[in-house]
Amino acid sequence: MFQFKLVLLGDSSVGKSSIVHRFVKDSFDDFRESTIGAAFLSQTIKIRDTSSDSTEDTVIKFEIWDTAGQERYKSLAPMYYRNANAALVVYDITQQDSLSKAQNWVNELKNKVGDEDLIICLLGNKLDLCDSSDNGDKRAVMTDEAKVYAEEQDLLFYEVSAKTGQGVKDVFQSIGEKLYQIKKEEMLSKKGRQAASAKDSVNVKLQRPSTNDPTSCCY
């Protein structure tokens, strides 16, 4: 089984915790308490490996760190995103401002983590509030605007709703597949080099070396 560490970043109240709870517990709560520090949750998914001939699904486990959004706590984030395999950077589609906050996060991740293999996914949340057929459409960030940015930066991009659940599973599924792909390649190349010992890959935990100083926040 594979384990991956995943972290959620983004402005306060964009719905990070709601997304995680939708994914992990398939529930939504209008009054979920604000996050302080960070919250930890985990969930597993199955990946079908199309390239191999085995019909067995591979199980992967996400260890998810859901962080607090307010800028004041930004300096703590490195503690949570260190060693992460993927980052979900969330904004609120109905709040223009939250996209620029998300972009700041993307920059920080690219500068500080500086790891090619870190998968960053840009997520627009609260899609349920954007019903174009209805004149109550609250959309403030156009899909194209975010999409263009995501392509430029080479990010995955989705619009979802934690409230209805729309798109949430897909996000994690595709991140999982991508991480699995990377992992497999990594192992294959290793195998090529030292043709041994990769067989018992059952209990592999991906730990990437920490590139940022873990204690940078407080000491």
Binding site: E33, I36, G37, L76, M79, T215, C217, Y219
Partner: peptide, 15 residues
Amino acid sequence: NLFFCFRMLLVWFKR
């Protein structure tokens, strides 16, 4: 660095 105590200290064990 006992960073893991952050939340407990911040809001006095409220959570």
